[in-house]
Amino acid sequence: MALSRRRFLKLGANATVGGLLIYTLRGVLPSSSPGAADAGTDDAAEGYTPGDTSWVFIIDTMACIGCGRCVRACKEENDVPLEPHCNRTWVERYTFTTDGEVYVDSPNSGYDGFADAELPEGARGKEITRSFFVPKPCNQCDASPCTQVCPVGATYKTDDGIVLVNQDKCIGCRYCVQACPYAMRYIHPRKGVADKCTWCYHRITKGKLPACVQICPVGARKFGDLNDPESEVSKILAERNVSVLKPEMGTKPKAFFLDLDGEVV
């Protein structure tokens, strides 16, 4: 799906308004919230055939403003508990100071945004040279260690390359949580099973965007189909400098970061 800048901004603006509506009307008008009907299910939409698509995620750390809308939208959309250790996605803040130190933090996973967030303790009072935010979705690794180590096959990779958890099968042994080099997984405190970012599989198989992408007001999160040469993601991957996290792990991530700083892990 090709997104022009104008359409993207419009989409972002709509999403913001829509997102605010979701929060305000949640509980009052549950059926009116987009995605609420299938929240928490990772199943593909009816009539969708995986295999024709090759999804990729692109993160533009220089665009992210640290508003935290993506984190809030994700928790809302995917029934992610509000506990601080339960996150399908989060936003990190990197702060560089003149003495050459790097400080990283993610207060409440970025849920509340960074507008009122104090600097990390060590950085306070120091002169800052630069700073940026890093949104983190699941990498949907092509060689995913979490899939490899699941003892019962509850974690699996769909034909279109998304790593999902069959939560009716998961025994909650937490081996996948240990195996993920990116700490993308957590154990759902209510369900006792593993949970992770699915790039909103229930949405993307219906032609929608992942909730975090849709709500991002600045286009810092981009999503699309690599099999479509006209898509924004195809063009970025063809023309721009991108990298993946921890390439030495051999996990072959499908989330790419634009012009990523070497300090980001």
Binding site: H85, N87, V104, S106, S109, A183, I187
Partner: peptide
């Protein structure tokens, strides 16, 4: 230091 959000809970 910095710990990834999901790592606040020790798994095993």
């Amino acid at each position: 230091g910095y710990v990834f959000p999901n790592e606040i809970e020790v798994q095993w």
